[in-house]
Simulated scan of single mutants.
Amino acid sequence: MKMIPSQWETNRLTIKDMTQQEITTVQELYEQGSYIHQWDGGSLDKKYASRCFTEGDLPPGGTRAQFNIQVIRLKDKGNLAGLLTTYHGYPTPESFYINYLYMDKELHKKGLGREVVSELLSIVEQAEYREVRANVAIKNWPALRFWTGQGLNTIQGIYGDKEYGADKYADIELVKVF
């Protein structure tokens, strides 16, 4: 199985594997995005960055070797701009899973997320994966618009509560086939 590079670039960004020294700042960025839990029913994971670095955020039967956590930095300033976690080979060996993508709230609406995903999709396709998947909370309309706009526009499945309600949650798994 081919892994995405440990470091890669876009026009304005550098993306590289997270180091142990970055755990605290990455955790702060992750917590900045905790508002998504109003849409997915989850709760804040106070050890998310550390857990991802040591154990990974794994699917059933997954291994740490197939998981990747990468930081996204602005090329011009070197500032932490975002976080990307991915899994290589789930649910099939030909599948590439985008677990989590978050860009600093101060950088929203600047096209940086699109820039990351565009290059990532190119890398994944060159690595000969057959599909890319992402799981999105149905109530997270901005993320649904974003991912479908990036070509992940086929619904693989809907998981979670069967009925709508303020305290009910479900996710939609979106797929782009190459």
Rank of each mutant, 00 (worst) to 15 (best):
F53H: 15
A127T: 03
L144E: 01
M1I: 07
R12N: 14
Q126W: 04
Q126S: 08
K109F: 09
I69R: 06
D40L: 06
L74Q: 11
H37V: 12
V175F: 13
M103K: 08
R145I: 13
L144I: 07
A127W: 00
T10W: 04
T154R: 15
T92F: 12
G113T: 05
I15S: 02
K47Y: 12
Y87P: 03
K162Q: 14
G89A: 10
Y97T: 12
Q126F: 05
I155D: 01
H108V: 01
T14I: 15
L83I: 10
Y159H: 06
Y164I: 13
G62Q: 05
F178D: 05
R145S: 08
P5Q: 07
F67A: 07
M103F: 13
V132W: 02
A166G: 11
Q7S: 13
T19S: 07
S118H: 14
Y97W: 15
I23V: 14
V136G: 03
K109A: 09
W147C: 06
E106S: 15
T92V: 12
W39M: 11
E55M: 09
E22L: 07
Q20H: 09
Y129N: 01
K139Q: 06
F146I: 00
I23S: 07
L83S: 00
L120E: 03
Q27V: 03
L174T: 05
G61L: 11
G82E: 07
V124S: 01
S50K: 13
T54K: 03
I138D: 00
G82M: 08
E106W: 08
Q156C: 01
F53D: 00
T24Q: 15
T92G: 07
T86R: 08
D17T: 11
E119M: 07
N11A: 06
H108L: 13
G61V: 09
G151R: 06
V177N: 04
D167M: 11
I4C: 02
L152Q: 02
I172L: 02
L29D: 06
I172P: 00
K168G: 01
T24Y: 15
Q66R: 15
H88M: 06
W8Y: 04
D17S: 13
N79C: 13
S122I: 02
Y87N: 03
L144R: 06
V132P: 04
A137T: 09
E55C: 08
A166L: 13
E115M: 07
V177L: 07
T85M: 11
Y169L: 09
Y48S: 04
F96C: 02
R130V: 05
K46I: 07
E106T: 15
L112K: 01
E55L: 10
F146K: 04
Y129C: 02
K105H: 15
F67C: 04
L83A: 00
S50H: 13
G160T: 08
F67E: 02
L83C: 01
G89S: 09
N11H: 09
R73F: 00
R133M: 07
G151N: 06
G62E: 06
E125H: 12
